[in-house]
C-alpha cells in the first residue's frame, strides 16, 4: 500500500480515484473469469483469432467467384490452358467431355471409353455422329430453357453451350458431340479453358 501511495504522489485526488476504480474493475473481472472457469485454465483471447478470420474473410470476398460457371477440373477432366482470352461472364449449360463420361449439366449421360462412345449409343452405329442419349438430354435442356424463356422475358434461348473438354479428347468425339448438339438446336459453343 505504501508503494502505491508513493507512486501516486503528485496526482490529483480525482486521478487517484480513477486509478483505484480501474484497479477494482480489473479485480472484479479477474474474479468473474475465475468463476467462469472453475478449472482455472488460461484465459482465451479471441482478438488474434478474430484478426485472422477477418483477413481471411476479406481475402475470400476478393476471390469470390464472379463467374457464374462452376467448373471443377479433376483427373478425368484436365482443362487446356490458353493465352490471351477473355473471361466468360455468361451462364451457359455445361457439357463436359471427360475421359470417362459425357455430362450435361453435371449429370452423366453417356460413357466414354478410349475416347469413343460405344456404337450402341449411336443412332447409325460405330461410324455415326449422332449420340442418342446425349441428344435426348440436350433436347430436354433446350425444352426447359425455352419454357423458362416463355415465362421470363429476361431469359432468352440462344442455343449456346459451354463445352468443357478434357485435353486429350479426340477431335472425332468432339465433332460427334458438336453435331449432336447442333441437332438439338445448340449451334454456338464456348470452349472452357484455363486462363493464364
Amino acid at each position: 500500500m505504501t508503494e502505491t501511495k508513493d507512486s501516486l504522489a503528485g496526482l490529483t485526488p480525482e486521478e487517484i480515484e480513477e486509478l483505484e476504480f480501474q484497479k477494482k474493475a480489473k479485480d472484479a473481472r479477474k474474479e468473474k473469469m475465475k468463476l467462469r472457469r472453475p478449472g482455472g485454465g488460461v484465459a482465451l483471447t479471441p482478438t488474434s483469432l478474430l484478426d485472422i478470420m477477418t483477413i481471411l474473410l476479406v481475402f475470400m470476398l476478393k476471390n469470390y467467384a464472379t463467374n457464374p460457371m462452376n467448373i471443377n477440373p479433376s483427373g478425368d477432366l484436365r482443362l487446356v490452358k490458353s493465352t490471351d482470352v477473355s473471361e466468360s461472364h455468361k451462364h451457359l449449360v455445361p457439357l463436359a467431355i471427360t475421359s470417362k463420361h459425357i455430362l450435361v449439366d453435371d449429370k452423366p449421360v453417356v460413357q466414354v471409353k478410349d475416347g469413343k462412345v460405344s456404337a450402341t449409343a449411336k443412332r447409325e452405329g460405330g461410324d455415326g455422329y449422332f449420340i442418342t442419349p446425349l441428344f435426348d438430354a440436350l433436347q430436354a435442356t433446350a425444352e426447359h430453357q425455352k419454357k423458362l424463356a416463355e415465362y421470363n422475358s429476361s431469359v432468352k434461348f440462344e442455343g449456346e453451350l459451354m463445352i468443357v473438354a478434357d485435353k486429350d479428347v479426340p477431335f472425332r468425339l468432339l465433332s460427334e458431340v458438336l453435331y449432336t448438339a447442333g441437332q438439338a438446336e445448340f449451334g454456338k459453343f464456348e470452349f472452357a479453358v484455363i486462363r493464364l
Partner: peptide, 29 residues
C-alpha cells in the same frame, strides 16, 4: 456471435471461390 458468423461465412466463401480462372473460346459450327 460475430465469430459464429465468420465461421459460417468462411466455408461458404471457400466453396464458391474459384482457384482456377476459367475462360471461354467462342466457336460455331
Amino acid at each position: 456471435p460475430f465469430m459464429n458468423l465468420i465461421a459460417i461465412l468462411i466455408p461458404a466463401l471457400m466453396y464458391s471461390t474459384e482457384f482456377v480462372k476459367i475462360a471461354s473460346l467462342a466457336v460455331s459450327s
